[in-house]
Design a protein around this nucleic acid. Structure first.
Lengths: 343, 343
DNA sequence: TAAATTTTTTCAAACGTTTGCATTCAATAT
DNA sequence: ATATTGAATGCAAACGTTTGAAAAAATTTA
C-alpha cells in the first residue's frame, strides 16, 4: 500500500484504554490530567511520531492560518523581496504563506483565488496579472470581497477597488530618474516602457512624460517603445532607437533587465556609456551595482512593501470595527551610478 | 465583527427545508436529485456565493492535494525555474504548491516540514538548507520518511538518504567548463567556490579539480576561494586573486552571480575579458547572455528538473507496491560565449 | 385500490480534534 | 458510616461535507 495512515488520537486512546479526550488533554498539558498518564501518553506519542492533524483543527476552529500570496511571477528580484518581507513578519506569527504564481494568466489567477477561498485562507495578498488588467474582469475578486477575506494589493493594483494596498511610488521614482538625466544634460531621452495597462508601466511612463514636460522638452512618441520586462525584449527596440535619424542620447528602462538589454545593444553599436548614451533602470536589482558600467537605477523597497502589507493585513484582522482600508505608498529612491554620470 | 461566516451546506438546507445530503447531492449533480431541486439549489448557491469548504473535505477524504516545496531561497533563477517546472505539471492536476523558503535556516526547515506533515501534505519537494548540511542533522526528515510521505530531493541532496531525487549533473558541467578554459589555452584557472558542504558547491569543485588533474595541471589551493553565491561575495575574493604574485588567467565561478561580480573587479583592474582573464559562470541566467562581454556558462535545466521531480512524485503516489526510489540526473550544458573566447 | 416500482429525500456515520459538563472514584472530613 | 471534597476521566457535541442504506413519496402497474 501507499501511505500508512497517520497515528490519531483515537489510536493512542485505544492503546491506553482511555478516551480521546484524555489523550488530547494529556498532549496539551491540561492540568486536570494525571501526571503519569500525561507522561506515558506523551512519550508514546513521540515514539510513534504522532502529529496533530491540523486539518481537523482548522475545521473545528475555523482558523487555517493560511494566507495566499498571488503574484504574476517570482522570477524578478522585486517579487521575491516582497515575499521575503511578508514572510519575515507573518511566518513567526504562525501563518503559512501559500505562494501562487499566475504567470500573468487571468484564468489561473481566478482559479487560485477560488482555491484559496475554498481552503479558507484568512487573507490574500494580490498583485494582479497582466491579463486581468487587460481584460478588466474583476469578478473573481468580488468573491473575495463578499467573503470579507482581507485582500491586500501589492505592487500592481486595481485603482477602483476598495481594499488595502501597499505600493511603491513608481511615478516619482521615474520622475526623479528622468530629471536626473536631464540635469546631467541629456536631451533626447527614450523610454523602454513596460506592457501597456499595468500600473507600474503606466506610472513610470507618466513620471517620464511629466518630467519631460516640466522641463519643456518634447515627448517624442517614437522614443517610447514597449517591452515585456525581460532582457530580450529590449534588444530590438533599442536597435530601432539607435538607428533613428535623431537617436536618443539617453534611455530610461522600465526596469533593470530592460536597461541591461539596452546596455548590451549600445555597447555592440560601439557607443560609450555614459558619454554617448546615458542609461537608467528601475528596481536596483543586485547585479545592477556590479555590471560595467554600474547601472543608475531606482530602488524599490520590496522587502518593506511586504512588511507593510503584512501590517495592513494584521490591522484588518485585529481591527475592531469594520474593515479599515489603508493605502500605503512607499517612496522609491534614485541610485546614481556610472551609467548616467557623464561630466 | 470581522469576517462573515461563509455560507455552508447546512445554511442552504435550512433555506430549502431539506437535508444537507440533498444540498450536497444537488451541488454535485448527483442523478438521484429532482431536476427542479437541483436547479433551485444551484442557483441559490451561486447567488449567495457558496464555496465548498475544502478543509472539511480534506478531513473526510484524507486528501489535501497539498504539496510542499521547501527551498533555501527563491532569489535565484534556478530555483524559480524549478518551481515553474513543478507548477507546470502539478497545478493542472489540482495540486496546490506550498512554497516554503528556509533562508538556509535549519530550524525553519524543520518547522516547515513539521507544519507540512501536520497539514497532511501529500508530498514534499526538498532542497535542504545549508545549515542542515553543515549540522548534519537529518532527524527532521525521519518524520517524513516514517509517515511515508513522498519526499523528493531537488537540487541539493543528502546522499545517504533513501528517497527519490532529481538533480543536475553539476560535476560534468563544471568539468566541461574548466576543460573548455583549458582548451582555449588558459593555464592558471581559479575557482570561486560556493559554500562548503553543499552538494552543488562540492560537485562543481570536484569537476574543477578532476579536470585540472586530468590535464596534469596543478591544483593551486590559493586559487580556490569561497563565496556565498551572491554577487557581492565575489568582490573581495577576486581582488585577492588578481593581486597575487602569480594571478590566475581564468576564473570559474560557482554561478553566474559570482562570475559577474568577478567580471566587475577584473574590468576595474583594467584587465580585458577574455584576452587577459577568461571567465565562466554557471546557471545560464537570463542576463548572462546580455552582459558585456556575454558570459560563458553552464546551463542547468531547472524547469526540467521541476518536471522530472513531479514525475518522480507521481510515480510514488500511483506506484503499486512499495515506494520505488528513483534518481534522475539531468545533464548540464556548456554555453560558450564571449567571456572565454580568446583566440 | 392495493401492490409494485421508481424517484426523491433523509438518516447516520465518518474524518480528527477540542471542550464544557457530567461522571467516577478515591481520599478526606465529619 | 456518611457526606464532602478533589482529582481524574469520560461523554457528547461541534466543525462541514459526503455517502451507503433506509425511508418516504410519487408514480406506475395489475
Amino acid at each position: 500500500m501507499n501511505s500508512t495512515r497517520p497515528v490519531t488520537i483515537k489510536d493512542i486512546a485505544r492503546r491506553f484504554r482511555c478516551s480521546p479526550s484524555t489523550v488530547s488533554r494529556a498532549l496539551n498539558d491540561h492540568p486536570a490530567i494525571n501526571e503519569d498518564t500525561r507522561k506515558n501518553i506523551q512519550e508514546y506519542a513521540r515514539e510513534v511520531g504522532y502529529q496533530r492533524n491540523e486539518v481537523s483543527l482548522s475545521l473545528l476552529n475555523k482558523k487555517t492560518a493560511l494566507l495566499g500570496v498571488v503574484v504574476p511571477t517570482i522570477s524578478n528580484y522585486y517579487e521575491t523581496a516582497v515575499i521575503e518581507g511578508l514572510h519575515s513578519v507573518l511566518q513567526p506569527m504562525g501563518y503559512t504563506l501559500n505562494i501562487c504564481v499566475t504567470n500573468e494568466n487571468y484564468l489561473l489567477e481566478k482559479e487560485y483565488l477560488s482555491r484559496l477561498l475554498s481552503n479558507r485562507a484568512e487573507g490574500i495578498f494580490l498583485s494582479v496579472s497582466q491579463e486581468t488588467y487587460d481584460s478588466g474582469y474583476y469578478e473573481h475578486l468580488e468573491n473575495v470581497i463578499q467573503r470579507k477575506t482581507p485582500l491586500i494589493f501589492i505592487d500592481r493594483e486595481y485603482e477602483d477597488f476598495e481594499t488595502s494596498r501597499a505600493t511603491v511610488d513608481d511615478y516619482h521614482g521615474a520622475f526623479a530618474a528622468v530629471e536626473h538625466l536631464i540635469n546631467i544634460g541629456y536631451k533626447q531621452i527614450a523610454h523602454l516602457k513596460g506592457p501597456n495597462g499595468l500600473t507600474v508601466s503606466e506610472q513610470r511612463f507618466r513620471g517620464y512624460k511629466d518630467c519631460l514636460q516640466k522641463h519643456d522638452m518634447p515627448v517624442r512618441e517614437e522614443l517610447i517603445i514597449n517591452t515585456n520586462f525581460q532582457v530580450e525584449s529590449a534588444i530590438v527596440p533599442t536597435k530601432r532607437l539607435l538607428d533613428m535619424a535623431l537617436p536618443p542620447d539617453a534611455i530610461f528602462g522600465v526596469n533593470d533587465q530592460v536597461a541591461i538589454g539596452a546596455m548590451r545593444v549600445v555597447k555592440d553599436k560601439g557607443l560609450r556609456i555614459p558619454q554617448d548614451i546615458g542609461l537608467v533602470g528601475f528596481d536596483n536589482s543586485p547585479i545592477s551595482a556590479y555590471i560595467f558600467p554600474s547601472l543608475t537605477t531606482v530602488s524599490r523597497p520590496g522587502r518593506k512593501i511586504g512588511m507593510e502589507a503584512s501590517r495592513l493585513f494584521l490591522n484588518q484582522v485585529n481591527g475592531s470595527g469594520d474593515f479599515l482600508h489603508e493605502s500605503i505608498v512607499l517612496p522609491s529612491e534614485l541610485i546614481i551610478r556610472e551609467s548616467s554620470l557623464r561630466f
